[in-house]
Amino acid sequence: MTSAITPIGLLDSDQVKSVIGAAALAPSTHNTQPWRFRCTPVGLELHADPERALPVVDADQRELLLSCGAALFNLRTAIQALGAHPATTLLPRRDQPNLLAVVRPFSARKPDPRLVELADAIPRRHTNRTPFERAVIPAATVTRLRHAAELEQAWLPRMDAVQLHRLRELVNKSHHAQLADPAFVAEWRYWTGRDCTSRGGVPDYAAGAMPADDGGWILRDFGTQATPPRGRIDEADPLVVIIGSFDDTRLDRIRAGQAMQRVLLTATAAGLDASVISQPVEVPDVRNELRDLLGSGLWPQIVLRLGRGRPVAWTPRRSLADVLLEPDQRTA
C-alpha cells in the first residue's frame, strides 16, 4: 500500500484506500478523472487536478467541478456505508482554490440502508452509450430521481414534449458548432478514440449521444485519431433529464456534481443505464438558450439520457498512486 494512505478518524488504512477507490469511479468529461486525494490528520482532502482540465471545451472548469463533485458524492457515500459520518466542508481555503473539499470521518453513524444501496451501486455504475431499449421508465422511478437531485441542493425540472423537441434542436446546434471549431476537435481527438490500455480518456470502443438532423437520437462513435465520428440511430425514446442549480458559482457546480452522481447511482440501483449529453451545456450561447427554455430560473449543469442498453465495457481508471497527493504536495 502506498505511503500516502494513512488512517483517518474512524477509518483504517484499508478503508481509506477503499473509499478513495470508490470516489475515483465517478464519471468525468472525456474520462479525464480530474481529481486528486490527500490523507491528513484532520481529514481526507479532495483536490482538482488542473493538469486534467480541458481548456477548450471547459474553459471555466465548470465540468471539472461537476466531475469532482461526483467523486465527492461517491466518497461521502462510501464512508457512510462503513458506519462513519462524512462531515464535509466545501472550498475550505481561499488561498488553495484547487482544494475543493475536506471530509472528516471522525464520528460514528449507523449506515442508512438507502445510502448502502447507493454505495453498492458505485462499482456497477458506468456510462452506457449504446442505443436503449423501447421501454417506459415508471413514474415512481422518475420521482426518485428528482428527489435524489433535490437532496443535493439541485433540481431536475419536468420537461414537456415541446421542451424536449427544442432540446434536441439545441443539442444538434451545439454539436455542429463544436465540430466547426478546430481547437475543440483537436482537444476531443486527444482525449477520445484511445487505445484500450490507456488509463485515461475515452477508449475507441465508446460512443456518445447526439441528435440526428431529423430530431431523433443517434449515437456517435468517437472513432480513432484518424477517422471521423460515425453515427447509429437509437430507435428508442430515452428519458432525457436536466440537472440544474439556482446559481452558477463554484460551490453550486460542486453541489450539482454531487446531485448528478446521486441521480446516476439511484438510476443504477433501479436497473437503468445512463450517458451524458454534454454539448448544449458546453457551448455558452446554447447553454443560455437552454436556460431560457427552462424559464431562466435554473442554470442547466448537465443533461442525462436514461434507459436500458446492452452490456458495455467500463472505461479505465487511473492507478491509485496517480490520484494520491503526498502530505506535503500541493496542486498548482
Rank of each mutant, 00 (worst) to 15 (best):
G231F: 15
R220A: 10
A161D: 08
G271W: 06
D12M: 00
G193F: 07
P97C: 03
R199Q: 11
L304K: 06
Q15W: 08
P311I: 15
F222A: 09
G9R: 01
Q61M: 14
N74A: 09
G297E: 05
S245I: 02
T197L: 15
R134S: 15
P86G: 07
L156M: 02
D181H: 08
G309H: 05
A81W: 02
R76G: 10
V116S: 05
V276W: 14
L219C: 13
S107L: 10
T40A: 13
P327I: 00
A4K: 01
A269G: 05
L118R: 05
A186E: 13
T77V: 13
P284A: 04
A259M: 10
V323G: 01
L219A: 11
T266P: 00
Y205K: 14
R94E: 12
P182K: 05
V303S: 11
L46A: 13
Q96T: 09
P138L: 06
E45L: 14
R168T: 03
Y190I: 05
G193W: 01
D221R: 15
P92K: 12
I122C: 00
E152H: 05
P138C: 08
R287M: 10
L99E: 00
A119C: 15
T268W: 03
R230P: 04
R330Y: 10
R262K: 05
W217G: 07
A4N: 00
L54F: 02
